[in-house]
Amino acid sequence: MSSLLSSSIGKKLLMGLSGLFLILFLLIHLAINSLMLVPDGGETFNAAAHFMITNPIIKVTEPLLAIGFLVHIIYGFMLTIQNRKARGKDRYASGNKTSGVTWASQNMLILGITLLAFLILHLAHYWVKIKITGDPLLDPVMVNLAGVETMVDNAYALVNTSFGYLWIVIVYAVAGIGLALHLSHGFWSAFQTVGFSNNIWRKRLTAIGQIYAWFVGLGFSLIAVLQYLFYQG
């Protein structure tokens, strides 16, 4: 096992597997976020958020998610440092005129660092407030959970209020596009790295990857913009 993880392909396997895990997570995250668009003053969203916080399965997967992020970020930096070393100090004076290589595939680290900066801001905005410090906006409200009136944190108020600030909406919208670009290469690349690709599946995976990437990325952006435009006050 140790020799696997010290090999180039082993390290990339970790990168690919953690990437696939995060791809799955993003789908669930987007599904929950989309409930913010239900025009009931956030009752559905609060119920879903409450379910996500209290659900025992989530309690187990939350640390797993943190590990997934950490592995992906740490190995991303580690592999890039190795790759720069392998490339050597000398650059081509005549530049790089290879055609047909996507911009995203060559800038995964830059896109990743952008997303990391966003992630820190994002966690400070919500996760820290919900899990640690608390916030007056979170004051519990009554929601109907499967027929039972329950007191839950008003997560919707916290999110809704922050999406009232234009700069936050712009940051989220831009991060959504950055995420789409990162995923537009990351999706098929993860499958290729774990060995699940050939000439036929490559076409399928890149197509599915593009659809997934822009659906998820623009989905997050759109929810933030719609919250700003139509869900205030």
Binding site: S8, K85, S105, M108, T193
Partner: peptide
């Protein structure tokens, strides 16, 4: 000392 593949396809 060769690098790790990032699937750019160049």
């Amino acid at each position: 000392g060769f690098g790790n593949c990032t699937n750019t396809g160049a």
